[in-house]
Computed example of a mutant assay.
Amino acid sequence: MKRATGSKAMTDRPLVCLAAFAVGAVFLLVGILGFIPGVTSDYDMMKFAGHESEAKLLGVFNVSILHNIVHVLFGIAGIVLARQARTAEWYLIGGGAIYLVLWLYGLLIDKETSANFVPLNTADDWLHFVLGLGMIGLGVVLGRRLPRRERLA
């Protein structure tokens, strides 16, 4: 059954688009949840940025206002870039690379200094590692499944 609008249904899109949309939606949700007291413990201790922010999403992951805003923007980017296979693949691979760099950054900095401006804790570091590998893996594997013309478009 065709849609009258002529637009593709989400289920008709390449898997790389669905994956980028799902990843973007999760980041958007996580960014919003970071602003909800109760979901974020020690909400009253949240700072705009920096290691002094003691708020923790789900009681585990350090967050700040800046951290939450970055998640929201990264999520919106994923949803927007999921519209085309090529940009969805770029979002997943490029975003994964960013998260691997953030993982390394988190491992190398002293968490109690101004270098920890996001803020990051050990749980964030290892989540960034898993996200980075997962996003790159999705982008590479699902991007390979695209017809050559869609990959080069």
Rank of each mutant, 00 (worst) to 15 (best):
M45E: 13
G137Y: 02
L131S: 06
T5P: 01
L133W: 15
S114Y: 06
I98M: 10
V141T: 10
A9C: 03
F35G: 10
V26W: 09
K2A: 12
F48S: 15
F129H: 09
R13M: 10
V130T: 05
D110G: 13
A82H: 08
R86L: 11
A115K: 14
L127R: 15
V140H: 07
N62I: 02
Q84D: 15
F35E: 13
A115P: 03
V80I: 09
L104C: 11
H67Y: 01
A77F: 03
Y105W: 07
Y99K: 05
S114I: 03
E54Q: 15
F61Q: 12
N62A: 13
A55D: 11
R151F: 01
L127G: 11
W90A: 15
N62D: 15
T40D: 01
K111V: 04
V63Y: 00
T122F: 03
A115H: 11
G137A: 11
D125H: 10
D12E: 11
Q84E: 15
F48H: 12
S41D: 10
A82D: 10
G96K: 06
V80N: 08
P147L: 07
M46G: 04
H51M: 05
P119M: 04
G24Y: 01
H128R: 14
T40M: 00
T87I: 04
L57G: 01
Y105M: 12
I93G: 12
F21V: 07
T5I: 09
T113L: 06
S64Q: 04
V80E: 08
G50H: 07
D125S: 14
F35T: 15
G106R: 08
K2F: 00
A25D: 04
T11A: 11
T5Q: 07
L33V: 02
L138H: 01
H67R: 07
G50S: 14
T113H: 06
G34Y: 00
T113P: 01
C17I: 01
V16Y: 03
L28A: 06
G132D: 04
L58I: 08
L100F: 02
A19D: 08
L73Q: 08
R145L: 06
L108T: 12
V80Q: 07
G134W: 05
R148W: 05
D124I: 00
Y43T: 09
A77K: 09
P14W: 01
I36Q: 08
G106T: 02
T113R: 10
L28D: 03
I93P: 10
